[in-house]
Design a protein around this nucleic acid. Structure first.
Lengths: 208, 208, 208, 208
DNA sequence: GATGAATGAGAATTCATTCAT
DNA sequence: AATGAATGAATTCTCATTCAT
C-alpha cells in the first residue's frame, strides 16, 4: 500500500504508452467513423490505431464510450468561443459567427451524425453532452441577440443546436461548405422578421 | 392490380396474394424502419407482415430494394402537388407551401434518414430517386419564385431538397412539428433579402 | 392466414428434418457434455451433430436450454418406474431398488453434474426439474417404506435426491459401479436403525 | 515466516511482502472460488487480494497451482486429527468422528468441488494430493475399525474419501449441515451389518 | 409462390498470459 | 518483486441469405 511511495524512483511511468494508445484510438476512430460509420467493426479501428482489440476495450468498454470521447474532443474549444465573440461583436453578429464556428466544429465530426440519429439507445446520452456544454454558451448569445431585437425570440437554444446539427449531416456530393451555406440560410431566417407565411398561411398551425 | 387481366394467357392465380404480401411488407417495413432503423433484422419485418422471410427476399432481394420501395411510396403524390400549388398561389407562397408538404411527406419516412446518411453504398442511389422525381417539381417552383423576386436566387433545388431532408431528421424529444418549425425558419431565410451578415461580416468569408 | 388450410396437399413436412437435427444435437450434446463438460464450445457439439451453429441456437437459444433438454431426456422413464416397483416389492426393497435405478439413470448423465454444481445461475432451475418429476415418485416410496418401519423417517425426498445425485458424480479412475456401491452404502444407512454414534457420540452434535 | 533467517547470505528484503501477497491471494482465491467458481477471472481474485495480476502469475503460474494451494491449505491439520482421535476413541467412533471432521474440512472448500469434477485435466492431479495426505490417515482408522468388527470391511479408503467429497458438494438451498447429515447416513451404512438388499435383491446385479 | 429451417460468415467481447516499466 | 497495460486467441451469438419442401 505504501510501497509506491517507498519507491520514489519508479514514478509509475507506463502511463505514457497508455495515453499514446488512447490518442491513437481516438484518432483512428474519428477516421473510421467518417469512413465506415460509427458501427464499423472494432477491428477496423484498432488495426488503424495499431493496437490490439483488447486495448480498445480496456479504454472504451462500450462502443458509446468511444463515440462519446470522439464527440467531446474539441467541444471545449467551441464552447470557449462564445464569450470571446460576444466581446467583440454586436449580439446578432456574435451569434451568427458562433453558429458558423459551431457548424465548422460539426464538420469535424461528420461521421458521428448517423450515431446521433441511429435511434440506438446507447447513444441517447450523447446529445445531452452537447447541450450541457454548448447550451449555456448559445443561450447567452441567443438571449443577447434577441434582447437587441436582432433575432426573433421564438427559437430556443435547443432548437438551434439540433437544427444546425441536422443541417450539418453530410450530403452526397457536397462538402462542408454546403452545410455552411445551408446554415447561413437558417441564420438568415433567424434574423429576418418573422414571416411565417403570407396572408393565408398565417392561419396555418405551423407548429410554433 | 390490373395485371391479372394484362396476361390473359397465363392463369397466374396467386398474383393477388403476392400483391397483398408486397403491401404488407411495405407497411411493416415502414413501421419497423421507424422503430428499429433500416438495418432492423429482416425477421422483425416479416413477422410484422405475417409472412416468411423467403417472401421478403423474393420481392426485395436486396435490403436496399425494400428501402427504395419505402422511400418511393408516396413520392408521386408529393410530386403532383407542385403544379397544383402553382396554380392557386403566388410563386413564393406556392414554393413555401410545397416545402411544407414536402416536410410533411418526409415526416412519414423518419426512419429512413439514417439510411440516407449511413454512408452505406447500398443506399447511395436513394437520393437520386428523390431528385429525379421531386427535382423537376421543385425547380419549377423555385424558378418561378426567384423570377418573381420572392426568394433569393442562389439556392438550388438540390440544395433545398437535401437541406430540408436533413432538417427532417428526428430529434430526441421532438416530434414532426419541430422539424416543420425549423424548415419554416429556413424558408424564411430563403425569402428574406440576402443578409450574409451585418456590415462588417460582409467582408467575412462566410463559406458562401 | 387461411392459406395453409387452402393447400391440404402440403402438410408442412420439413419438420422431419428439424426433428432429426434436434435429436442429433441432443445426442451430440450428451456425448460432448460427458467428454468436455457442459461448457464445451458450441462448435464442438454442432460439429459432432453435423449441423451448423445456427441450428443449435435456433433450437436451444440458451446453453441452459440444451442442458435442460439433456437432463430431461429419460427422466420420465425413471419416474414411471416408481409405481411399478411399489407393486411388486416390499416397501423397503421397492425404495432401494428405485434408488438403484435412479443411480443408473444419473450414470447416463454424468457430464451434467458439474453444471448442477457450477453455481451458474443459468442452471439454477435444473434441480427444480428433477424435483418436480421425481420428487413425488420418491416421496411415495419413501413414505411407504417409513410407514412400514423399514427405513428411518428423518430423511426427506429432497435430501435423498440430491445426496444420491452428489454420490453419482464421476470419480477419477472409477466407473458407474463405484457410484452404485456408494449409493448402496447410503441406502444401508437409510435402512439401518438410526445410530447417530455410539454411547458417547450421543452427546456429539452430529449435525442432525 | 522463518525463511528470512533460513537464507543468511541472501539479503532478500522483500520476502515479507511476497509472503503477504501469497497469503492475500490464497485468501482471496478461497473466497472467489466459493463465489464464482474455480474458473473465475484472475482479475477478480487479484482485485480482492489487492495485488496486480502479474503478482498472481508470479506465485501461481498455472491456475491449477492456485487451486492446489487452496486445496492443500488446512489439509495437514485434518491429517493430524487422525492419530489423536484413535488415542481417545473406540476404533469405530474414532473413524466416524474423523469423517465428521473431514466433512467439516471439506465444507471449507466448497467452491473447489466443481474443479474436482470439471474433467479439466489440469485438475486431475488434485485428488492425488488428498489421497497422499489423508489416505494413510484414513486407512489407519478404517483398518482399526474393521479389525474391531465395527465397520464392514469392503469399503476402501479411496472409496470413502471420494464418496464423502462428493457428498460434500453444495446443494442448492442447503448449508454444510445438510452435507454433515448425509455423511452421517453414509457412516451409518458403513457401520451397519452389510445388507446389500433383502432376499430377492440378492439375485439382482446391483453393480457391486 | 410461400415458408421457415439451416447455414456459416462476421462481429463483439472476454480473459489468460506476457512483458515493459 | 510488483504492477497493470497490451495482446489476441477463443468463444458466443446474430442475422442475411439460401434452399428444400
Amino acid at each position: 500500500m505504501t510501497e509506491k511511495a517507498a519507491r520514489p524512483g519508479v514514478p509509475r511511468r507506463t502511463r505514457a504508452d497508455a495515453q499514446r494508445n488512447v490518442e491513437a484510438l481516438l484518432k483512428a476512430a474519428r477516421t473510421v467513423f467518417d469512413t465506415s460509420g460509427v458501427n464499423a467493426p472494432a477491428k477496423e479501428i484498432t488495426d488503424l490505431a495499431g493496437v490490439g482489440v483488447g486495448t480498445l476495450y480496456r479504454h472504451f468498454p462500450l462502443r458509446s464510450d468511444l463515440v462519446k470521447a470522439v464527440v467531446e474532443s474539441g467541444i471545449d474549444a467551441c464552447a470557449a468561443a462564445g464569450p470571446q465573440l460576444s466581446a467583440v461583436h454586436e449580439p446578432g453578429e456574435a451569434l451568427a459567427e458562433w453558429l458558423r464556428q459551431y457548424t465548422e466544429f460539426l464538420g469535424t465530426k461528420r461521421g458521428l451524425a448517423p450515431a446521433l440519429h441511429s435511434g440506438d439507445p446507447a447513444y441517447e446520452a450523447l446529445p445531452g453532452h452537447f447541450l450541457e456544454k454548448l447550451g449555456p454558451v448559445l443561450t447567452q448569445l441567443l438571449d443577447a441577440a434577441a434582447a437587441a431585437g436582432e433575432v426573433r425570440d421564438d427559437v430556443s437554444t435547443h432548437d438551434l443546436l439540433y437544427a444546425i446539427a441536422n443541417l450539418c449531416m453530410p450530403v452526397p456530393g457536397q462538402g462542408p461548405e454546403y452545410n455552411q451555406r445551408m446554415v447561413a440560410l437558417l441564420i438568415d431566417g433567424l434574423r429576418a422578421p418573422r414571416q411565417g407565411g403570407s396572408s393565408d398561411s398565417s392561419s396555418t398551425d405551423d407548429g410554433r
